[in-house]
Design a protein around this nucleic acid. Structure first.
Length: 256
DNA sequence: CGGGCGTTTCCTGGTT
DNA sequence: GAACCAGGAAACGCCC
């Protein structure tokens, strides 16, 4: 009923005189959302709850469209918008009811073949934030201002190592998290610290999520992992693809 | 400002 | 041919 303010408007005209369709997000799978769909969604939420659109930290989500966003937890939303993160998270999850795991063994990803998470800048996709897209030369001001939130207890399930932001720590944490453990990474031999990355690209997206970098790929993540060989924090396992093990210099991964 | 660490990005080449 | 694995190089962001 009465959808006041913004939601009654179908299009929004941006400063640069670009017209943005605010309704397309409704007809697409959330995984296929581009930046415009994301904005349309946020405008919708703002209207629904009578919140001034300007109060939503839209810019903090600009690089999260597509599958990237589908991997975000409530905490991830709150990191980007402390005030309305939870609300946005709930509304978002409502829209992807037909997918998304609420726990471990997730599902088979359906037949979507979007080649690239966001910026599948096919045709008429308008850009709201030019920055996030011109990558290369100006990876400039990727505002990473809301990244010091690792003490919100979100990870503190059991044990409370200061869990830094290092890659190997991130991997260790995903092995402890039932949201990711059997499905995206799993133990091959818990006692010896041998684990296997099951969903390589998802693992990479998750890592990118943590580092606020939507361009992360398994190729790049694995390169970073190879740098650990020397320091013996992580080591490769014979000829087993996607299988690694924690080395003598990795801590806090052992059973108990 | 400078240096170092921990990646990130790119790339060539080899393997499964 | 796709998806991985190995590393070298160079560029970056951040911290001290």
């Amino acid at each position: 009923m009465s959808r006041g303010t913004l939601s009654s408007v179908r299009f929004k005209t941006l400063p640069n005189s670009v017209r943005l369709d605010l309704e397309t997000f409704r007809s697409k799978k959330t995984e296929d959302w581009n930046v415009d769909d994301l904005i349309g969604f946020m405008i919708y939420v703002a209207g629904k709850y009578r919140v001034p659109f300007e109060e939503l930290n839209v810019h903090k989500f600009s690089g999260c469209a597509g599958k990237f966003m589908a991997l975000m937890s409530e905490e991830n939303f709150k990191e980007r918008d402390p005030k309305y993160g939870t609300l946005l998270f709930r509304e978002f999850r409502n829209l992807c009811s037909d997918a998304l795991p609420r726990s471990a063994d997730d599902q088979r990803e359906a037949p979507c073949q979007s080649s690239s998470p966001e910026s599948t800048g096919t045709s008429k996709t308008v850009r709201l934030s030019p920055k996030e897209d011109e990558r290369r030369s100006s990876r400039s001001a990727t505002r990473r201002s809301a990244t010091r939130t690792e003490n919100d207890g979100s990870e503190g399930k059991r044990g409370h190592h200061k869990s830094g932001n290092k890659l190997w720590e991130f991997i260790r944490d995903t092995l402890k998290n039932p949201e990711t453990c059997p499905s995206i990474v799993r133990w091959e031999n818990r006692e010896e610290g041998i684990f296997r990355i099951v969903e390589s690209e998802k693992m990479a997206q998750l890592w990118g999520l943590k580092k606020n970098n939507s361009r992360m790929t398994y190729e790049k993540l694995s390169r970073a992992m190879r740098y650990y060989y020397n320091s013996k924090i992580i080591l490769p396992v014979s000829g087993r693809r996607l299988v690694y093990k924690f080395g003598p210099h990795a801590v806090d991964w052992k059973p108990a």
